[in-house]
Each structure stands twice: as C-alpha cells, then as structure tokens.
Design a protein around this nucleic acid. Structure first.
Lengths: 222, 222
DNA sequence: AAATTACTTCTTGTATACAAAAATTAATTC
DNA sequence: GAATTAATTTTTGTATACAAGAAGTAATTT
C-alpha cells in the first residue's frame, strides 16, 4: 500500500502463492522477480518483506525467501484458530446483522446451494468465500473481519483440496443452510456452534483431510 | 529476522511504540531514524515495512509512516477479539495443560497475587503478562499462542492505563484465582467463560475505560 | 574414488544516487 | 491583510553500485 511499484507486486505474488501457482518451498529469487516485473530489486524486496509478515513466505537471513512450508501440525493449529474466529464472526453476526445484510446473506446462500450439486468446484469455492465474507461483515467488527479474512487467505492454498472431496460441496451447503437460519433467527449460541463444527477438521473428516494432503506436508515438523 | 541491521532496529522501534515512548500519530522520519541508528535509509525502510504489516504503524503512500492511531471503535473491536482469543487459549489449556505447566501456572499466579495489594503497577503488569503467556503456551497451539501474543502486544500501549484504575489489580487477581482453578481442574467451559469476562470491557468497566482514555482516541473514527 | 578444502560465482544486504511527489515557504494578487 | 499561486525545500520511492556471505565447483589429498 505504500509504494507504487511494490504495491502492484504484492497482490500478484500473494495471489500466486494463495492459488498454488507458487507452491510451498519455491525460492523467490529477487533478481528474477525484478526482471519479471520490470523493476529493480528494491520494490521486490519491499513486497517480500510485507509478505513475510503475513506468514505467506519465509525470509531466511542471507538465504533468500521461500514460499512458506507448513507442517501438518501447523495446519491443524491454524484450522483450530480459524474455527474459533469464524465461530465468533457467526455469533456476533447473529446478534448484529442488519435487514439489508440478512437479505444479501440469504441470496448468497441460495446461490451457493444451487451450485452445490454441480461440478463447478472453482465457482462454488468462489461463491462460498463470498458468503463467508458476508458473515464476517455482519459481525460489525472490522478488526475481526480483517483477521479472519487474512487467516482464511493464508489457509486457502490448503483448503482448495478439500472442496474436491466427493460429496463435500453438498454437505457443506447443508451445513450452511442451518447456519444461515440460525443467524437470521438471531440464535447466536447455535450459529457459533454450527460454525465451529463446520470449519473444524475433526472426526472422520480428519482422515479425509490427511489423505488428500500432498506428501510435502509431512516433511518439516517445525 | 532477515537482515542484520534491519532486524536490530525492528524490536527497538516495536518496543518504543509498545511502551508509548513513540506515541500514536508520531511521524517516523526515515532519514532521522537512519541517522539515529547509524545506518542508511534502506534497513530503516525494511523495518518500517515489517512494522506496518503488524499494524503498529501506518504507511501512507508518499506521505511517510506514523505510529498507528486507533479510534475507540477500533479499540473496542480489538478487545472483543482479544477476549475470544484468550478465551480459546484458556479453554484449550484446561484440556491440554501438562503437570509441569500446571506447577508453573500456580506459581505465577501466587506471585501475581502477592503483588496485587501493593503499588508496583509495572511489576504487576509484567508478572501478569507472564502468567497470561503461560496459559497461551498451555493451549499447545503455537499458532494461537503467537497470534494472541501479537494482539496483546499491539494492545499493550492502551492497556497500561487500565492497571492504574484503583482496585483493578486486586479484582484482576481474584478473577485470575478462579481462572487458574478452572484450568487446573480441567474445566474448559468455565475457563473459557471466566477469561472472556476477564478480558472483555463491559458493564461498568466500560465507563471506567472510556474515562481513562486520552483525548486523541476520539479524533479519528476510522 | 570419496572427501575435504580452496576458489569462484551467485545472491543477499546495505549504501548511495537520482527522480518524483508532497510539504513548506515566498511572492503576488485581490 | 488574507488568500491563492509559484518556487523552493523536504521527503519518499526507485535504481544502481558495492560489500559480504552463502552456494556451488574444481582441485588436491588421502
């Protein structure tokens, strides 16, 4: 957000990491990136520094930056926090959502639901994200909203795998239905619980989760 | 963590912001900072970029960096999230704390308690922080621990005021007593609730909170 | 032939130089 | 005398130059 050039690189790199174009462990050569974007190393370094603060990349002193590698342990921990943050969003949303926001949420859910039966995974993923964003927003806590979005983004390279699990879209959408109802009813306790269970990776879903994980997650146990 | 010089500036600036030596709104002149630390502007800019990612400072394009100014609204939002994060730590700690960690927690609490009656506010603040850190650690979720510490640090310039409220140290310590018991008993539900109530600013404490707030909080309502 | 060490090359970290935008000051106009 | 505008001065953002450390390669030794 500061410089002109650097602020242009940042979202591009962010996007490429988040979508997996740049996979975990990939080295981020400053000179190469500078050439690619047609700038000097200075704004590249600026962008890398900012990315490192969000945890998306890791800067090792004198040894360059790599796309952050996350262990299974880390991932579990992050999902655990994610469940709590989202649950808090849902709880507050149930208490604070406005009529306009209710309308938008209902529409978003119906759109998601109509996609759940098909095979447009990316489309479902995108609309699903939008619906969740509406819930964050309805919490009327900007800081919470920002933190939750940030963690969601950081987890996104690891979540996309999940949507592909057979039947996951449909069950996810059903869970959303109950959640949306709870929020619209102002049932904060229920909304909180449903969300925590929806996001948390537990029970048999845990096994599915581990099974879909690429091998590299098992390497570093930092 | 990356460079040699820049990684030395970072914690220094962080500390000065957190302790209030650099108060909200203060401009962070790159050249001045460079001279002060005996380095060029490059590592200074690097440090500033990283600080901006944590939210402690704000970098306005082409207009330099300032120590972040926080509105009352922001502060309320952040405390709300803080309460949830700490409550989650306490909940998980109650379920996962080890015998060694139990011992350390009990000792830390007793130390805090013995300070609560006196007037060594800074000492109490420091030992209180330590106790809270032990609870975060006992959650056995490194990511949660890191996030909670980060937010606590970010809030710390605004919290110090609170400890000075008459009787606050004693009531705080009493609340801790009940919390520690809940954690040691493995009562996660209770630990969660006690912590949320302990951290949250609500009821009559809200009025006290507003009353102790310096005027500048009321300016920007971003 | 394997391993260790010296040497070369490459990459990062820092300083300096330059360009462009914002802030400040001075001057002019009403 | 106040306000607007032009000129000057600062200050930020970017590029380039240089220094130092890490990685890779070649040569020597066992």
């Amino acid at each position: 957000m500061s410089t002109s050039r650097a602020s242009e690189l940042l979202p591009v790199l962010e996007q490429e990491i988040v979508t997996g174009t740049l996979s975990p462990g990939t080295r981020l050569d400053e000179t190469l990136l500078a050439e690619r974007f047609g700038v000097s190393r200075t704004p590249v370094r600026e962008a890398l520094n900012r990315l490192s603060a969000t945890g998306l990349i890791e800067i090792r002193p004198r040894r360059g930056a790599i796309v952050a590698e996350i262990s299974v342990q880390d991932l579990m921990n992050m999902f655990e926090v994610m469940a709590e943050l989202e649950a808090t969003c849902a709880k507050l949303a149930a208490r604070r959502i406005t009529p306009d926001e209710k309308k938008a949420l209902l529409e978003a859910h119906e759109e998601c639901d109509s996609l759940a039966g098909g095979d447009q995974h990316d489309m479902y993923y995108e609309r699903n994200t939008h619906m969740h964003n509406l819930i964050y927003q309805a919490s009327h806590n900007n800081f919470l909203e920002k933190q939750t979005k940030e963690l969601r983004q950081r987890l996104s390279p690891h979540r996309r795998l999940q949507v592909r699990i057979p039947g996951r879209m449909v069950s996810s959408s059903n869970e959303h239905g109950a959640l949306v109802t709870a929020i619209l009813d102002g049932n904060s306790k229920l909304a909180e619980k449903l969300t925590r269970d929806h996001v948390a990776i537990q029970g048999e879903r845990f096994t599915d989760f581990l099974a879909t994980l690429p091998a590299h997650y098992l390497r570093n146990s930092a």
